[in-house]
Design a protein around this nucleic acid. Structure first.
Lengths: 354, 354
DNA sequence: TTGAAAGCGCTAACAG
DNA sequence: CTGTTAGCGCTTTCAA
């Protein structure tokens, strides 16, 4: 309680251990070799006095704050918490701290947050852009000042290093699975707009679904990445009597499933439903939703690795990298083969394939 | 791309506007009155040169970083993203930045994160403790150094200011609603342990359910706050043929609902199900789950206000405050009255009561 | 109202 | 290996 004790500084430790501040700094930061006995004395004194380095001073002097800014569109988007978790863990493991900014899907707020983070001298920036187009200027400007990695969504070509899931590969996994389990009249419930996830998944469906049925590439309905759209979309395509609904993400799939159940359709007996991302709700929905799991931990690891590479070689630019990670198909009840019987064979048991 | 431009400092602005750094500082920080014409020239120069204050230097000098640490148990707990969102927005609105630490439900990691944040000279700390008991020492020590507000969960009495929902009031809302809709054989699916949410909700059920049925306070099953437990708990209480399952949080309710549907029970016809928290899944479940909504934005506002109060009067301790906010009952299909007919009257339409 | 000067706590040259 | 000497960029006395 209260104002806290007067802080103990390097000088105090130096005095207590009978050597210079520089030596103490070297011992504690491990910058350069120091005599064993001196080092011991310093450490002992630091411990005893309860010394805590002052990061502000360190940052001012060494021009590095040990801090990374994380800018994202909406922490309440159910896919992001897991990603944030992995990112913060990966960064903390390297001794960095994470400044979080949720820009509420607003590119203007996003630009302000980026500006503020830069002003706070973050060493690097991790950005999930709010908008493919309208985020571009702010992101490009920021990328000119600090190492910056784009995650999950694109932001135009040539802006910065980026890490994302391979959306095409994911969609191919879904289509292969549906083909293998005898579905033919597939149908796509997607999202329009230029966001990379939306566009790539759309394109992959268009490219791959023709193998199941010549008319499949034409059976698409485009809205946004929401449950509401999933519900509405079912009504638009139901007349075509599809035997599978390929949804561009899990939220759409959840909505579609709800509407199908309202209509009295049997999932997966009459129609299979698949999602994308593997948010928690996909496993907890009844029936569990077959989906494409993003390799979240690996995405985070790649992103921090890219940052570290840039951080290590300041100036020497090197080519931009766009890393795409292969996703994994998670088969659940919503796409079980063998139509007819109601899908009540058990709780949502995830089966990882591939 | 690249290393970024050499930073422009106060000195540069001073030179460009023909006055001293002190004056520039005063103009830009608005600390003291400055001649109108001078101020204009300074601002113009700062703008033209693209001056960005260096927060590290400012922090070193003024002993305030404008930064708040947010420590939480698990960002993937579906209740927290909304809270994090509101907290970051509230703090950003005051010009503060948020350092995020997810301690993965581990009190040891939590203590380390708190230590690191303190070392980074956060002005204040917002903590959702991982464990009622084992978080106590680290939290108490931190509270002695900076203003600290406990959120959502308690951490023993007399540790720090705290903000949370009024769990008892929430449980009372649920019980009143069930009573009003004719439910009598109610049953509680809760969580054991000392965590305040678990204990308070448990106690409130014990205190209030007797009014419905003398045996109700005895019909309880205790596990943890998970979907899995919700599923399992149904099997433990189903023999008692309850007409309502009062769950200690929404995850338990989701699990209970799944198991009930597997058992062929009609919800809400045969049995009502209620949750607590109003996580997104509660609305999206089918049927939608009646639950107690935590006033997330208000919780965040109260917490930042408490911080500001402490920040404003350093030293003058003042009494600790424990703020409890009244929750709101959200009635959905899972507790609809008039038994019998299957709950398919429409999408999950939320009806806010009280 | 403004400027000069001191110094926050630390690290980085540069000598020794 | 260690100490001395300069500051990092800013805010804040203290004088003018």
């Amino acid at each position: 309680m209260g104002t806290g004790v007067a802080d103990v500084t390097l000088r105090d430790v130096a005095r207590a251990s009978g050597c210079s501040v520089a030596t103490v700094s070297r011992v504690l930061a491990g910058t350069r070799p120091v005599g064993a006995e001196t080092a011991r004395r310093v450490r002992e004194a630091a411990e005893r006095l309860g010394y805590r380095p002052n990061h502000a001073a360190r940052a001012l002097r060494s021009r590095a704050t040990g801090t990374v800014g994380l800018v994202l569109p909406q922490i309440t988007n159910p896919f992001y918490p897991a990603l944030v978790r992995e990112l913060t863990h990966a960064l903390h493991a390297e001794g960095r701290a994470v400044l979080l900014a949720d820009c509420d899907d607003d590119p203007v707020a996003e630009a302000e947050y980026i500006d503020d983070l830069l002003s706070r001298r973050v060493d690097a920036l991790l950005v999930i852009p709010a908008d493919e187009r309208r985020s571009r200027d702010a992101v490009a400007a920021a990328a000119a000042r600090v190492p910056l990695v784009l995650m999950d969504r694109g932001c135009g070509p040539g802006i910065a290093d980026s890490v994302a899931v391979d959306n095409s590969a994911g969609m191919a996994l879904v289509l292969d699975h549906l083909a293998a389990t005898g579905r033919r009249r597939v149908c796509f419930l997607g999202a329009d707009g230029t966001a990379s996830a939306a566009a790539e998944r759309r394109a992959a469906y268009a490219a791959g679904s023709g193998a199941l049925d010549a008319a499949a590439p034409g059976r698409i309905a485009l809205g946004d990445f929401s449950v509401e759209w999933g519900r509405a979309a079912v009504d638009l395509v139901w007349d075509a009597r599809p035997d599978a609904l390929v949804c561009a993400n899990d939220l759409i799939a959840v909505g579609a499933l709800q509407r199908l159940q309202q209509l009295g359709a049997d999932v997966p007996g009459d129609v299979a439903v698949t999602g994308f991302d593997d948010i928690p709700m996909a496993a907890l929905s009844a029936p569990g939703i077959t989906t494409v799991r993003q390799p979240v931990a690996e995405l985070a690891a790649e992103a921090t690795q890219l940052l570290n590479r840039r951080l290590a070689s300041p100036g020497s630019e090197g080519p931009q990298r766009a890393i795409r990670l292969a996703p994994e198909l998670v088969v659940r009840e919503s796409s079980a083969p063998g139509a007819g019987e109601r899908g009540l064979e058990g709780a949502s048991t995830a089966v990882a394939v591939s």
